[in-house]
């Protein structure tokens, strides 16, 4: 029971990170119907920018950690957003009205490019960071086994919930959210009605990248080590999460992220750690076979 509880906490933490990345996938898919394969690498860039910004602040002598983290968060969100925007502008926008597979290939190309760009710019070796946020609370102690929740885990979950709330509000209530939903329904009609489609799509990428940057920072703080390859596997997991939750659905992405995080954690804890990816992917296949549009997705009616 205690072990279970501990794993639950760990799983939710991991799931929060996946969920934040998954939102980027699901928003982009919702609005332009493409798999933004480079999104995982945007997340990786977010982690690197966070690391570099943090190290710079440290070298400048800023030792008040909360302030440093806040600055790092803002810088990472801005710079990573710029990457998200640029990728869309260069690789996707010219192909907007083109064939469905073309942007998928440019996305894969971008993913390869970004990975190697970071590898060349920062080196292929893993980048460690000493623990920044330490400490935590013991929730319960029984039979010599303690269930702990660390401060960083609390931070990750709180931040995720807060961001989820903010973005749900943005989508539901603001003009940007309305424009976004209009573009999702019918891009041509939306533009005829005065919605700036290009800007809306760009903003979608910017928001997705900003959230990925947050996920990147949290990944960095939680695991304390990153390399240029983390984007790929996290990206695939997050995309899996988005599909599992029902692609196009914001709560679905979060739910999918949590489920994938939990499956992975529990599988590693109770079965074999080597096959945790197999468990996550098998779960995806099983869910899709029985619920072809994901858990919270709108079922697609075949029009004849």
């Amino acid at each position: 029971m205690e072990y279970f509880l501990q794993q639950l906490i760990n799983g939710l933490t991991l799931g929060s990170i996946y969920g934040l990345i998954a939102i980027g996938y699901t928003m982009v898919y919702g609005i332009i119907g493409m798999i933004n394969f480079a999104h995982g690498d945007i997340f990786m860039i977010g982690a690197f920018i966070s690391l570099i910004a943090f190290l710079i602040l440290m070298s400048l002598g800023l030792t008040f950690i909360p302030l440093a983290l806040l600055i790092v968060l803002i810088v990472a969100m801005i710079v990573t957003s710029a990457y998200g925007w640029t990728v869309e502008r260069l690789a996707y926008r010219p192909l907007r009205e083109s064939f469905r597979l073309a942007p998928l290939i440019t996305a894969i190309g971008m993913s390869i490019f970004l990975q190697n760009y970071v590898q060349i710019a920062q080196g292929a070796r893993v980048k460690p960071l000493q623990p920044v946020i330490t400490g935590g609370y013991t929730i319960m102690e029984k039979n010599g086994f303690t269930v702990q929740i660390s401060n960083i885990q609390i931070l990750i979950m709180v931040l995720t919930v807060a961001l989820m709330a903010i973005f749900s509000w943005v989508i539901a209530k603001t003009p940007l959210g309305r424009a976004q939903r209009a573009c999702e329904q019918d891009r041509v009609m939306a533009s005829l009605l005065g919605v700036n489609v290009d800007r809306t799509i760009s903003l979608t990428f910017v928001i997705g990248a900003a959230l990925a940057a947050v996920a990147g920072l949290m990944f960095l703080l939680y695991y304390g080590v990153i390399d240029f390859y983390i984007g790929f596997i996290a990206g695939i997991k997050a995309f899996t999460a988005a599909v599992l939750g029902g692609i196009g659905s914001l709560p679905g992405a979060m739910l999918g992220g949590l489920i994938i995080g939990l499956i992975e954690t529990f599988w590693s804890a109770y079965f074999t750690i080597e096959y945790k990816d197999v468990a996550a992917f098998s779960m995806l296949a099983i869910v899709l076979i029985f619920l072809p549009s994901g858990l919270l997705g709108k079922p697609e009616v075949e029009k004849v």
Binding site: S98, F99, A102, G109, I112, Q115, N116
Partner: peptide, 21 residues
Amino acid sequence: NEYRMLIFGLLMVVIMVWKPR
């Protein structure tokens, strides 16, 4: 050699934008 994959990825993007079909 370090730049091979970088160029490879970039070319994928460029060729695709140039000839989407």
